[in-house]
Structure formats: structure tokens, C-alpha cells
Amino acid sequence: MVRMTGKKSTAKLHHYVPQGYLRGFATSQERIRVVPLDCSRPPYTPRVKNVAAQNHFHTVGEFEEPDAFEKVLSEVEGQALSIIRGFANGEFPPSEENRWAFAHYTALQSVRGPDTRRTIEHLRATVVRLEVGVGGRKNVGTWIQNNLGFDPTSEQEDRIWDEATQPGGPPIGFSNLAHIQNTVETAIELTPYLATRPWTLVRFDRRSLITSDAPVSLVRRPDDEPWEGVGFATAWGVTFPLTRKLGLLMSDPMAMLEGVGAGDPRVQQFREMVLAGRIDRIQSGTTAMEKFFNTHTAESAREYVFHHPEDERYVPVNLPEPDLLNIKPMGGLVDMDFDGEPLFASD
């Protein structure tokens, strides 16, 4: 639990994409171009401080300082921005300490946004809808007793049945504290999948990179089917635009270990080589690499694409629709209507 003492002012506007990071895509006056994925909304050019932020996104009353997590994030972000500056100045590959630190920052950035919170709320609502709907109306009282811990009245049963079985499930909120706990735990789990990938630092001269409100993108394997999911353990690569002129590609470590079993000692040897930076490389940015980065960045965006005001030509033409859900349950039971009868007969 984060505990901080002393009477200090509480920050109100909390960024889920760091201001320091966004400055790498902004003008010297800290202006950045915002392109909403909602095509009915025109692009605009605000200051960085007003981008990718929500009021009290990390405020937690349980902490002695309600914005304690925001301050902890600032320390993590400060270290990461220092590492990015080092990359820009030729300090690549990073030390193993900086590699782990930046891998953790990347993992944290991938799960800290409102899309993660909305996805978890959606998945939980879907699970509740299935549990209640499959059990039938006559068993909703038992479900309430087992899951909510009280004996409901008939009116309460009716209300919970109606809310739970409506399309999309019941309105379930994910608290700031729960979101922070999930963010921290998930980032810790994901960090090794990033640190142990070979890293390629791509430097651009004539062309530029864009970024988004979800700047860490997973690249599918070439032979994956479109319907197959992709995760940090299975992705061919991970792209992360660091500045408008600098991109990081974390590639597939298994591509160099084809045919080698998991228990083979060469796997551990290769892992040690990766962590030592001996597989990393620096590459000059080409037109193909710019399009590769920018296409995946745009496809991973949830609501907004960001870019330097002079880089509009590098934004892909066909942007996706806005969507705060990064995982979607399959059809079948999820989409069915419930008529009040138990789906399965009891013994």
C-alpha cells in the first residue's frame, strides 16, 4: 500500500499517457495535434497538459494522500524519459537495469489507460449476466446470497434480475483502487515478456512517427488468423513510438530459437544474451518501417491519435472506429436472451 504523509496540494488532472512522453511529439510550445477516431469530431491542437487525461483518474481516498499513485507514476515516468533521452543520445543498448526499468514502464503504459478499466468492467458484467441468466429467475435469490451477501426481497430480486440480464449485463464500476491494483499487478506479470525480447531502436530522419492514447502495440505473427487473439507472450513483436523520430521494436525471441526445446540450455543462454543487450541493434528508419510503426499505432488507438502538427501526412488514412474494449467475448451464450428459465435442468 502506498502511504505518503504531509499536507500537500492534491493533483486533480491525471494523465494516462505521460506529459513528458507526449512532448516528444509536440512543438516547442507544447502543442500537439489530436485526431479523434470519431470522424464526426474534427482534429484540434491543444497543449500537452490537456491531452490523454481525466480528472481524478488515480485519486484514491484510502491513501493518506489521495493522489499518491499519481506521484509514484511520476517517478517511474521520470526514469523512463531519462532512458529515452539516453537512447536518443546513443546510449543503446541499455544496461540490464535500465532494460528492466523500461520494460516495466512499457508494460505499465500498456495497461494503465481507461480502455483497460472499461474492458474489465465489461468482462465482469458479462460474467454476471451469464451466471444470473443461466441460473434462471427462480435462482437469482441464491445467487444474490452467495455473491452479494444478503437475503433479498422479491423486489430486489426483480431489479437485479432485470439489470443483470439486460444486453451488456449490469452496470459494474471498477474503482480507482481496484484499477491501480490491477495495473500494478499486470505490469509486473508482463514485464519479463518485454525485457527478454530482442530490441531494435529505429531512428528516423526524413519521416516521423505518430502516437496514440494506447501507444504500445502488439504485432501479430504473419501466419495468425484474423480471428485469433494476440498477447504479450504470443505476439511477433511489440512496437512503441518513443518520440516522433525514435521507435522501439521488441521482436520475437523464438525466431532465433526455431526447433530448440524449452528445456534446452541454449534457451537460458540466449535469454542472458538478450538481457545483456547483445542481440539488440540500431536501425535507420525507412518508409516501410515508418508505415509499419504508424499503422500498428493507429490500429491500437482507442479514442485518439496524436502527432506533431507538421506530421499529418504520416497518419494512416483509414483509422479505426473508437473502442474502449480491447478484449471482446465471443458470441453464443454471451449474446443470448434469457427468458427466466434455467438453461440447464437441475438434478
Rank of each mutant, 00 (worst) to 15 (best):
F338I: 02
G173L: 15
T295Q: 14
R278M: 13
F306A: 01
N139D: 11
V334D: 02
G259E: 05
R203G: 05
D339W: 11
L201M: 05
S208Y: 10
P36I: 02
F69H: 04
F292G: 07
H308W: 13
R302A: 01
M256Q: 13
M256P: 05
R220K: 08
H179T: 06
L257V: 13
L325Y: 08
S212T: 03
D335F: 09
E91H: 15
I188T: 07
H122Q: 09
M336N: 09
L249H: 07
N176C: 10
F57M: 04
R278S: 13
F344R: 13
G247M: 04
G231T: 12
D158W: 14
A235D: 07
R302K: 05
E75I: 13
Q268W: 10
P43D: 04
A301I: 00
A178G: 13
L246Y: 05
I180C: 05
H122P: 03
P36Y: 02
T45V: 11
G20A: 12
R302S: 00
F57P: 01
P114C: 01
L22M: 12
P320A: 01
V274W: 05
Q79E: 14
G136E: 01
I327K: 08
V34Q: 07
N50R: 06
D347Y: 11
L130D: 06
F292I: 12
V305Q: 00
S74Q: 12
A298C: 05
F344L: 15
G149D: 12
R85C: 12
P342G: 01
K328C: 04
P152Q: 05
A107V: 01
V2C: 08
A164H: 02
I120R: 06
E225N: 13
W100T: 13
P241D: 07
V17L: 00
I188M: 06
I172L: 11
T126G: 09
E155P: 05
F57E: 02
D158G: 10
P322A: 05
A88N: 06
M256E: 09
R159E: 15
F292Y: 14
D67C: 01
E157K: 15
R220W: 04
V111N: 00
Q283E: 11
G331S: 09
W100P: 08
Y105E: 08
P46Y: 08
L242K: 07
V334H: 04
L108A: 01
T45I: 09
G141I: 03
P18F: 04
Y21G: 03
V48W: 03
G229E: 03
A214G: 02
H15F: 03
P316D: 10
V34W: 08
A214D: 00
R206M: 07
I84K: 04
L201K: 03
S217V: 04
S208T: 11
F174A: 11
P316G: 11
K291Y: 13
T286P: 01
V111P: 00
L249I: 08
L324C: 00
G229R: 01
D252A: 06
V184T: 12
D311I: 09
P215K: 01
K8Q: 11
R197C: 10
T200M: 10
R41H: 10
D264N: 15
R129V: 07
L108R: 00
P320W: 01
L190V: 02
A345W: 08
A52V: 00
R33F: 13
G237W: 04
E258T: 08
G149F: 14
E321F: 13
E228V: 10
M254K: 15
L73S: 06
